[in-house]
Design a protein around this nucleic acid. Structure first.
Lengths: 214, 214
DNA sequence: TCAATAGTGTCTATGAGACACTATTAA
DNA sequence: TTAATAGTGTCTCATAGACACTATTGA
């Protein structure tokens, strides 16, 4: 990388106007038996709840900026941020010309430590009304997550392995926001799973086979 | 928009380092009966062929920058640019820290005027080897286009209406890069089309019904 | 035994692939 | 009439939904 580049009219790259670039991330998870939920943060002045975000540092990868913002602002160890969309409305941020690159990060519930008062976990159906168009980012994130959970068993590893078919189906029901037929779901997922020889033993009922993703 | 914003440590937004932001666009089209093709440009010094692109101007929308670059560099009147992905490798552009927002624009062949020697139309299967990761952008664009042409009849309006079922199928075969079964294709598309009362009359064979998208 | 949960057998409706068949034109 | 293209009928196969059935446990 160098600053010596000049365009045909002799200007350096840095002589052009440049936007600030932010990353804003919808961190999604499903607490055991609970609904699809998103991590929200607010600043020290107790303002509105919003998605965690930060400005990108010089030469930094977008995914690195996402992980840094999650670690710093939400105490969350993110995994694999996935780009969703660039929000570029020049008037969307009253602080100036800011491009926001929306991201999705999917984190198992047991990996979240949400002790601080500036961080909370909110069911996505209750998380509307965020500033800076963060509702739109959440909408993109939920749609993306639902599309990958439509045909593969827990592709983001939200459930600790091994898991029973019931637990897997309940997870998918939480992500998709709809009930699934147990027998159709089983038949769709079985070819993509490998059975273990351990069985669930608690409570009544026939012991359930535990599976790993195959 | 104002410059008066200060962060907790008193810095203005513009005091932070900011990247240059470029847009690069895969303009895809299908010439009558021809293969899926992409518009390439090269600069006045007759360098490598690449995708048209430009730096974003202050306060400009990304889609506007795309249309400006297509009009200026390729003499193309673009339609509805669609965002694909942000390429953020800090070392991908040797001129400095540049984020590139890849776009797809789909343009009917009859709307293209490619007279200048700095602009050409190339079949996508022959367009490999471009600089600045433009091959990757083309890959994203082709994948996106194929996904929308998998279930809807000519969603981007590449074909002038009304069109025959054969013309529609040949278009889809060009986009998808594979042969399609005439009867299965007909049955899949018919519910999404409306028949007109005009018929194709040239050449031998039973006159073909002409359709519009429904 | 009963309640509860896991898992299977199987009928049916739907849709894609395959392919033979009919329909309508130009030459 | 023949070649060429448009369009239909229908068989088969794979799959999803539906639902009844069997299987195995704790209490």
């Amino acid at each position: 990388m160098t600053d010596e580049y000049r365009d045909p009219s002799g200007r350096r790259l840095t002589d052009y106007p440049r936007p600030s670039v932010a990353v804003d991330t919808a961190v999604l998870t499903v607490p055991a038996g609970g609904p699809l939920s998103v991590v929200q943060v607010r600043d020290a002045s107790l303002g509105d709840w919003r998605l965690p975000g930060t400005f990108v540092h010089e030469g930094e990868r977008l995914a690195s900026a996402v992980l840094r913002s999650l670690s710093t602002k939400a105490g969350v160890t993110g995994l694999a941020p996935e780009q969703l969309h660039v929000f570029d409305d020049p008037s969307r941020d009253d602080r100036g010309w800011v491009l926001s690159v929306a991201h999705l990060d999917v984190v198992p519930a047991h990996a979240l430590e949400l002790d601080e008062p500036q961080v909370r976990l909110t069911p996505v159906i209750e998380a509307r009304g965020m500033v800076h168009g963060h509702d739109d980012i959440l909408g993109f994130a939920v749609a993306r997550l639902r599309s990958v959970y439509s045909d593969a068993p827990d592709p983001h590893g939200l459930l600790p392995e091994p898991f029973t078919m019931s637990a897997l189906r309940q997870l998918h029901e939480s992500v998709l926001g709809e009930r699934l037929l147990p027998d159709s779901f089983r038949r769709a997922m079985l070819p993509k799973l490998v059975a273990t020889d351990t069985k669930r033993a608690d409570g009544p009922g026939k012991p359930a086979t535990r599976y790993r993703r195959g």
